[in-house]
Design a protein around this nucleic acid. Sequence first.
DNA 1: TACTTGACCGTAT
DNA 2: CATACGGCCAAGT
Length: 113
Amino acid sequence: MNDAQERIYAAIAAIPPGRVASYGAIAARAGLPGRARLVGRLLGEVPEGMTLPWFRVLRASGEVALPRGSRGFREQCRLLKAEGVEVKNGRVPLSRFGLDADVDRALWGMPGF
DNA sequence: TACTTGACCGTAT
DNA sequence: CATACGGCCAAGT
């Protein structure tokens, strides 16, 4: 297991419950900007026995990356909803559940949003 | 070695 | 909203 791999898994493990992050954000947090694809690839080969909140990782658009109707897709939606994340039509509003949603709202958010 | 794939992204049109 | 394009790059053929 190489360094990049460990850092990415660590970044994913650090996503707080009830929040979500995009592949690109994870890559950036792992010190690997521009390498979103690597994140996606690694999620497909998570070591046996390792538990990871993989379901908290979404596309930059807020959509679930897995194919609609697949088992993984349903499972991801279920797990997210189970911890209070709003998933509508396979999509999550990053403006409210994204990692930096709080900061954004504090700095630029308008009252009532 | 060469070419293709893919749980991706940001910008532009 | 949808297409296109270039960037990214480990694995698989």
